[in-house]
Design a protein around this nucleic acid. Structure first.
Lengths: 112, 112
DNA sequence: TCGAATAGCAACCGGGAGGTTGCGTAATGG
DNA sequence: CCATTACGCAACCTCCCGGTTGCTATTCGA
């Protein structure tokens, strides 16, 4: 069970967080997490934004790999890709974990 | 002990992700996750930034509640607060979870 | 076939983010 | 006591982000 577990440097994960740091983009993700691919106009309805505005946001999400798009016919179908989200989650996991470990050690008076 | 478990709307968690979406700030968090409070000059060394630059980043992190600061003597001690990080993590958890559920339902042909 | 739908591209704009410099102030310690 | 340290505040600058408008290209469908 050699889990290679290759380490991702923080410099790589920052853009993912940046992409998630916008309420419009989070809402778009929320609309995509049901697994159904949707077009831009579908994703745009309900927002007080132009189609191009939504399109820009989708391209930001796509650039960091959180969503993927495929041109089918005259419309672009967008789909969520959870792998980067999983990366971000496990990064936060590691931070919390190390924090907990540090607290534990402090409480046990193991250091200093 | 009625744990109200009040639900955080996505609109609230976006600023946390935005604060995490910067490599400098992620590095600062990485320096703070050992549980030891550190001053600004301590946190600033190693960066190719001014002290004020680092100070601005720290204030961004503090504003969203990821770190806390306390003035002790002539220096400000910064400490990590993992609660917001935990919030962000569980938000991503929910996204992944709903994605997995949706995939499962699709695979079982329960819908469509 | 031809109008409507869907989307991409480019230009433009205002505001805020990231960063610096300069200065003032409180605490430290020799 | 006084130079030094650590910090905050404010002004300033540049650049990118979020958003719009206008135009063009492609595809659908009646």
């Amino acid at each position: 069970m050699s889990r290679a577990r290759l380490k991702r440097r923080p410099v790589d994960i920052a853009p993912v967080f940046a992409a998630l740091g916008d309420r419009v983009r989070l809402s778009l993700l929320s609309r995509l997490k049901d697994g159904k691919p949707q077009s831009i106009v579908q994703l745009a309805e309900g927002f007080e934004l132009t189609r191009q505005g939504v399109s820009k946001h989708l391209r930001v999400l796509e650039q960091v790999g959180v969503v993927t798009s495929e041109r089918v016919g005259r419309e672009s179908q967008f789909l969520l890709d959870p792998s980067r989200i999983h990366d971000a989650r496990s990064y936060l996991d590691r931070v919390s974990e190390q924090w907990d470990d540090a607290l534990m050690r402090l409480k046990m008076h193991v250091e200093r």
